[in-house]
Simulated scan of single mutants.
Amino acid sequence: MRAMSSAEAWVGSWRPHKPRGPIAALYGSPGPKYALPGLTGISKHDPTKYKAPMFSFGIRHDQANSNCSPGPRYLIPSNITRGGRDGTPAFSLHSRPKEPALFQAPGPGKYSPEKSGNLIFHAAPAYSLAGRSKEISNSQTPGPASYSLPPVLGPKTVATAAAPTYSLCGRSKNGSFHEDLKKTPGPAAYKVVDPCTYSQKPPQYSMTGRNFTPGETTKKPGPGAHYPEQVTFTRPKAPSFSFGLRHSEFISPLIVDAPE
């Protein structure tokens, strides 16, 4: 065989053949780049495939909320049918409403176009000689003199700080102690401060009498009020006899020997 093809170059034993599987270089599409929907779970399941039932580990509720309607909660009027209100006449006790009045539109004479210039163009100031209305004279508003501001001078200021004020008046001697020294305060006019206020307080004793507890003021029986010799509960007692009971006058007497 080498002798037959000695003039051709040796290219090896490999020759082109049909590929066994798809090769990405032979196709212009991206290939299996986009994944198909999954067949497991509930999220993004393939809608074209059958989905098997799934069970959860949740607890069973006491009452299933199968009915979500409000029930007979709303009261439907009896005159409402499936086709709307019934055609029976309804009467009320209200009065008949008045007919609405016709709207009377203003005519051409109601407008004054000649007076519209002041609203569109600039107008000069106009003054009138009309008298003062009576309403102004009735309103009695206070003038500037009706208000009084607080003083700012002297010791009786309200809004500002007052500086110390001094007077040039002398001390009057009429009626003072300069004329009569008896008017001067004596030692009894001053109150002496108790030493216990600013120093240690000593013990204090009182001279009051001894107090007794209040007792009972009722009269008690003395020794002569008792009779021990008449006590028969603790010693033997001699028999005592009585003269019988007093019978009633209406009882018949007992007759033993009746005459024959």
Rank of each mutant, 00 (worst) to 15 (best):
Asp46Lys: 02
Gly28Ile: 03
Gly87Ile: 06
Ala35Gln: 11
Gly28Trp: 02
Gly84Asn: 06
Tyr50Asn: 05
Pro37Leu: 14
Gly31Trp: 01
Pro37Cys: 03
Pro72Asn: 15
Ile80Asn: 02
Gly87Gln: 11
Asn65Thr: 10
Thr48Val: 00
Gly41Met: 05
Asp46Met: 02
Leu75His: 05
Pro47Leu: 08
Pro30Asn: 09
Tyr74Val: 14
Arg85Lys: 10
Leu75Tyr: 03
Gln63Arg: 13
Ala64Thr: 11
His61Tyr: 12
Ser78Met: 02
Pro53Asp: 07
Asn67Ile: 10
Lys49Arg: 13
Ser66Ala: 12
Asn79Ser: 08
Ala64Ile: 02
Pro37Ser: 06
Arg82Phe: 03
Tyr74Lys: 09
Phe55Met: 07
Leu75Ile: 07
Leu75Lys: 06
Lys44Cys: 05
Pro72Ala: 08
Pro70Leu: 12
Thr88Lys: 15
Tyr50Glu: 14
Ile59Phe: 13
Gly28Asp: 13
Thr88Cys: 01
Thr81Lys: 02
Pro53Ser: 09
Pro53Thr: 06
Arg82Thr: 14
Ser56His: 11
Ala52Lys: 12
Thr48Glu: 12
Gly28Met: 08
Ser66Phe: 13
Gly87Tyr: 01
Lys44Asp: 12
Cys68Ser: 11
Gly28Asn: 13
Leu75Gln: 10
Ala52Glu: 11
Ile76His: 03
Tyr74Ala: 12
Pro53Asn: 12
Tyr34Thr: 13
Lys44Ile: 06
Gly84Met: 07
Tyr50Met: 07
Gly71Ala: 03
Asn65Tyr: 08
Asp46Ala: 13
Ser69Asp: 09
Ser69Tyr: 01
Pro30Trp: 07
Leu36Pro: 05
Phe57Asn: 12
Pro53Gly: 06
Met54Cys: 04
His45Gln: 05
Ser69Glu: 09
Gly71Cys: 04
Gly38Tyr: 00
Ile59Gly: 07
Ser29His: 11
Gly83Cys: 04
His61Asn: 07
Pro70Met: 03
Gly83Ser: 15
Arg60Trp: 08
Ser69Leu: 12
Asn65Gly: 09
Ile42Ala: 09
Cys68His: 07
Ser43Cys: 06
Gly28Tyr: 00
Tyr50Asp: 12
Lys51Gly: 02
Leu39Val: 13
Arg82Pro: 11
Gly38Val: 15
Asp86Pro: 00
Met54Lys: 12
Phe57Arg: 06
Arg85His: 08
Ile59Asp: 05
Asp62Arg: 14
Ser66Val: 13
Thr40Asp: 09
Ile42Phe: 07
Lys49His: 09
Ala35Asn: 05
Ser56Tyr: 10
Pro53Arg: 15
Pro30Tyr: 05
Pro53His: 00
Pro32Glu: 15
Thr81Arg: 13
Arg60His: 06
Ser43Lys: 14
Met54Leu: 14
Leu75Gly: 02
Asn79Met: 00
Asn79Glu: 14
Leu39Arg: 13
Tyr74Asn: 09
Pro47Ile: 14
Lys51Cys: 03
Thr40Asn: 12
Lys49Val: 11
Asn67Glu: 11
Ser66Ile: 10
Thr48Lys: 02
Tyr27Glu: 10
Gly31Phe: 01
Lys44Phe: 10
